[in-house]
Design a protein around this nucleic acid. Sequence first.
DNA 1: CATACATGAATTTTT
DNA 2: TTCATGTATG
Length: 703
Amino acid sequence: MIRGPFHPAFMPAALSPPVGLNPAQLQAVHHLDGPCLVVAGAGSGKTRVITHKIARLLQAGLEPGQIAAITFTNKAAQEMRERAKALVGPRAAKDLAVSTFHSLGVRLLREDGSAVGLKPEFSILDSDDVLSLLRDAGATTDAKLARQWQWCISLWKNQGLDSHGAAAAAQNDNERVAARVMKLFEERLQAYQAVDFDDLIGLPLKLLQRDATVRLKWQDRFHHVLVDEYQDTNAVQYELMKLLVSHPDPRRAARFTAVGDDDQSIYGWRGATIDNLKRLPLEFPQLRVIPLEQNYRSTAAILRAANHVIAGNPKLFEKKLWSDLGEGEPVRLLECDGEEHEAERAVGFVQALRGNGGPSIKLSDFAILYRANHQARAFEQKLRAAQIPYKVSGGQSFFDKAEIKDLCAWLRLLVNQDDDPAFLRAITTPKRGIGHQTLGKLGEFGSMWKTSLFESLFAPSLGAVLPAKAVGSLHEFGRFVNDLAHKAGQTSGAEDAKALLMEWLREIGYEQHLFDGEDNEKLATARWANVLDFVDWIGKRCGGEIDNLGGMTTETPRRTVLEVAQTISVIISLAERGDEQDVVTLSTLHAAKGLEWPHVVLAGVNEGLLPFKSEDDEMTPERLEEERRLMYVGITRARQTLAVSTLRRRKRGRELVMAIPSRFILEMKLHDTPNREDPREKLKRMRQELAAKVAASAKVEGA
DNA sequence: CATACATGAATTTTT
DNA sequence: TTCATGTATG
């Protein structure tokens, strides 16, 4: 057990942000010369610590480019850059190496990937690309099976295993098959000069392990590394970070700040390991551990419930959140008859608070949180019935749909023929008799001559490595793309543009492709409808019509299809920013991590759901602990009001059966009151309250 | 026997 | 919401 030097009992009343930093935060910010672990409780101002530490490091003489701040999501990276900019100014902020683990990995591989056999223009496959590659490699049309492989392979990679290691680690027949598919998958990635998301961490690690020169280059580059959400790192990420901070010069070694909270580790199921937190003090004996315990988010009543729940878990680092925001309202418990009733009460919760507080309470002050996505359904229904606008977090965006990504890949290829990922997607969608053998050879050829796949396609010497038939199909594809790109550069106006796009879709046989690849005809029809929507959408942007985007009415100038295609990624990111509206948020607990709302409903807090339990596997203590942390994360999202709802009965078939409230509800100890009152004082207070009540009712009667 | 419709069950997600 | 399974009907 490790105890930080600043325990609340010894701590003077701290100043709240934004006035300054509290003593623990100050200590974290000013500890520059050695390894530092900031155990940042929920709402304890960790981003504030990171940004101030960046400022402090700059003040101490580091260049912005020498500071690496690593996050998990692009959103977090963006936010961190914004907040750093506010503190240190745009000039310095611009050069800071604020990035996700993955984008840092991309940077490493683009610069030095040749040492692991990658050309600088390697392609990055997203998970859909990987899925179709696996289906292809494993020769199956069973999407479910392919997804199992994908899952399995990803977990292996997160543990630092390649197909060799995986074959040895495989526990059963399914896993042995997955390991074999993984082997084929690796070969194809290599041939295509492509990597998947997991490789973006794994390959840089391999690179730094193997190549001492490259390793020293990157160790030299970063003088201080900050890692956010450290508890979410997996084994490979840990090794990568460790290598980055293992400078051979002892005066430069171990300069890092890890910020995390063992109590908020909820991604064990995808490879994150709390071992990384346990190992840190062992592998870096000089590690300074600084707990941040003052919470600036929630009321005492809410924090008390959170602390009680998490007390059920074994402690890695001693820490107890407290706040000086006042006791606040007691946590409410909503006991409901079934999901419908629960949804009604959640809606009632929103309406009641809004009714009391008037219009000053916004809808965006509310969130309804739950364990599993399907639970959103009932809430959506009731919110719609009550005419309350809402958004469901984590829903699939229009632009994430496979068919839209297919078309976007084609458009990207028209704009830039050297976009290899786009090339690969376009040339294989729909299938046109060019298989992985041909593409593998083309990739090898391209990496040998340092040319893009498209350039390689027309190289005269290609005939030496590929049969004439394959070269013929490749040329045909190339001519088709060139021809299309030419036409796209000439065509503008909504109608002409749409005609061109439809003609193109007909020529590549896209509609047929959708219906071939899908047994479910209804689904294929829906996909085709999306395609038509997309064509319409592009058309609009080509043609001088009145357009309505995000409430702003603008007249779009006349543009060619090619010009629209050029701006497509920008348009997509604009169109996706549908947030910042005044609506209620529905979200899973996982997706809610890092966010906060004044008023929160924690729904479906029942045995079996939270903690989650499935039929065919037993509940290990570790699993239960992660579920408990999930509950803890849920509770600590709330600033002012928290309602925990549980089902007393739930529908099973047509009858209502008993449902068991979650053990976590008892663990919250909702009847625990702040400072237990002296019984005599309590009696006195109750007597006074009674007298006041009597007086009030007398007044009413008299009136 | 095949197709259509209804019914019930459902982890969690980023890059 | 989606996805799979089961029943009823042609």
